[in-house]
């Protein structure tokens, strides 16, 4: 496959890629710290993954195999659109298989299959600041990170427990990276948080509109915030997948009629179809 000759490989010019790579290197060196970068205006709208796209464009090589998922699925419209963007501008091979991919760009999920050392997971991030809902001023949150002043977040979680009996955050659940920086895992369900801890793959996070890049290097500690007497609890629908029978994966609820009919299916479509194929082969 060849790429669109009207644009540089993977759309961005080489000096922009170099600027982004420098930000990535800094982010890897300081796990969980948000590095400002000169985010460019992309031909896709802010909120559609412009940060993730720029990070992917900066790390992508001609031999890479790219997988793009949104809500765990390869066939969601925006995942389709981003995959098509890189096929057109980089001419690279794309895949729907988590195992075959070298780079996986994702919005809102971490694949169920364990990732490997030779893979990179690129997250699309809408709001990189984990303290943003408690303190909207960036000048102030930067100071709080510098001083590791995270009391405000612990108070918020404590208030949740006092009011609801448990921590009422179910996604974008804040994590502590390498024992130092409080980080937003992006709006993945809290169910996915434990997968980030000691992951063999490099995890990169790109926020285009907010102009921040951050990273979790391979085999780094990522702990979801909790209290000794109120340990972190991942949330999933207590059902099994209608299609593959899985009882330990993250499920989507699908309404089948308007009188309460519903089924639950795996959110990770590649994982689900692999399991279905195995089940069929066994039968």
């Amino acid at each position: 496959m060849t790429h669109d000759p009207g644009y540089n490989f993977a759309y961005l010019d080489e000096s922009t890629k170099r600027m982004i790579r420098r930000a990535i290197l800094k982010a890897v060196a300081i796990p969980g710290h948000q590095v400002p970068f000169g985010s460019r205006e992309m031909p896709l709208p802010y909120g559609w993954g412009t940060g993730g796209i720029q990070v992917t464009a900066a790390v992508l090589g001609p031999a890479d195999v790219l997988k793009v998922i949104d809500q765990g699925s390869d066939d969601t419209t925006n995942a389709v659109s981003i995959r098509a963007f890189f096929r057109r501008t980089a001419g690279i091979a794309t895949t729907e298989s988590t195992e075959a991919a070298t780079i996986i760009q994702t919005r809102h999920r971490i694949p169920e299959r364990k990732l490997r050392e030779d893979q990179i997971l690129v997250y699309q991030v809408p709001i990189p600041e984990p303290l943003g809902r408690l303190e909207p001023r960036i000048a102030e949150t930067r100071r709080m990170h510098a001083m590791a002043d995270y009391g405000l977040m612990h108070v918020k979680l404590y208030e949740d427990i006092a009011r609801h009996g448990h921590i009422a955050t179910s996604y974008s659940y804040p994590v502590m990276v390498n024992g130092r920086y409080l980080m937003s895992p992006s709006p993945i369900p809290a169910f996915d948080n434990p997968k980030m801890d000691q992951m063999p793959a490099l995890q990169l996070f790109g926020a285009g509109r907010e102009k921040r890049i951050y990273a979790v290097p391979p085999y780094t500690s990522v702990k979801s915030l909790d209290f000794d007497d109120h340990p972190f609890r991942p949330i999933r629908a207590p059902h099994v997948c209608e299609l593959c029978g899985s009882g330990d994966t993250y499920l989507d609820e699908v309404l089948t009629d308007d009188v309460g009919g519903r089924i639950f299916v795996c959110s990770d479509t590649d994982f689900c179809s692999e399991r279905q194929a195995m089940k069929e082969a066994a039968e």
Partner: peptide
């Protein structure tokens, strides 16, 4: 854009 993964978490919550 789809947000059904997060919405599912909120539903269970």
């Amino acid at each position: 854009l789809p947000h059904y993964v997060d919405f599912q978490s909120e539903l269970e919550n």
